[in-house]
């Protein structure tokens, strides 16, 4: 249903994503994994249409995001939800109004119906009773759960999750991950989850995409990834510091950087 074609994204000289061709199947949970800086958030933002790719295409069925009218994009987005890495709650509104926001903006529902729906969403994330809190009064994990409730408010068909469990305690993280997999199984939701939490990611994934330095290095079901014999994949899922993926991404020699004196010419390795 969602397909990318030779996606390229550059930030100045940095190639954040290169040659990405992926397929996101409907009614499944697709998990995008990879180390810090591997391009996960960038890929999610491109697919969600928040940033244009430097080159390549993103297809939603027959709609190409690079050649889409704003009206059509907003029509598609009426069926999308997104949980941002840092929540992105509207600061000027309290918890209730944040969760109710998509409903009051896009539907003509009676306020009592909205109240019921918001209460249900807040109950799902365990935050019923916090309706009057302002975002600044919430902890990071609570804000994340409110963002979760907001993303689900319209019962969307496609939901993007950027690190849904980071900053959450193990219990909340467990609730949130099981919520994602339950909603995807029971309703006809399509989930696209970005995470570097291998355990949680493989636990809920129908399909896994592994990114490294802006490129897809492995793709498959959770089991295929678990039993992959690609050295890079093994290193990532086992979390070993040594292996083909260097922990440090520096291009220059450590010794030379330590001995570097201002005014001298720096050598590249």
């Amino acid at each position: 249903m969602i397909r990318t074609e030779n996606l390229l994204r550059r930030f100045g000289d940095v190639v954040a994503l290169n040659n990405i061709n992926i397929h996101i199947k409907p009614h499944q949970t697709t998990v995008i994994m990879g180390g810090s800086g591997s391009g996960k958030t960038t890929l999610l933002r491109l697919i969600a249409g928040l940033e244009p790719p430097t080159a390549g295409h993103i297809w939603y069925g027959k709609d190409d995001l690079s050649h889409i009218t704003q009206k059509r994009l907003y029509q598609l987005r009426a069926h999308m939800g997104m949980v941002f890495q840092y929540s992105a709650l509207l600061n000027s509104l309290n918890v209730y109004d944040n969760v109710a926001f998509p409903l009051t903006e896009h539907t003509r529902l009676d306020s009592s119906v909205v109240r019921t729906m918001v209460t249900m969403k807040l109950e799902q994330v365990g935050l019923r009773g916090f309706e009057h809190f302002m975002p600044s009064q919430l902890s990071g994990g609570m804000a994340k759960r409110v963002a979760f409730a907001r993303a689900l408010a319209m019962d969307p068909e496609i939901v993007f999750f950027d690190e849904p469990t980071s900053g959450l305690d193990p219990i909340s993280a467990g609730v949130v991950t099981s919520l994602i997999s339950n909603l995807t199984k029971r309703t006809k939701m399509t989930s696209i989850v970005v995470t570097h939490d291998v355990h949680a990611g493989l636990g809920i994934a129908d399909h896994v995409i592994l990114l490294w330095q802006g490129e897809v290095i492995a793709e498959g079901t959770a089991n295929e990834i678990r039993h992959s014999d690609d050295a890079r994949v093994r290193q990532f899922i086992e979390g070993r510091p040594d292996g083909p993926i260097p922990f440090s991404r520096s291009q220059t020699s450590y010794v030379e950087d330590l001995l570097y004196k201002p005014g001298t010419v720096r050598m590249s390795r």
Binding site: R45, A48, G49, L50, Y74, Q75, R77, A78, M80, G81, M82, F84, Y86, A88, L89, L90, N91, F101, P102, E105, H106, F160
Partner: peptide, 11 residues
């Protein structure tokens, strides 16, 4: 804080 992006995503 990506609130502008959040608005975009909510159409």
């Amino acid at each position: 804080t990506e609130q502008l992006d959040a608005l975009q995503m909510m159409a």
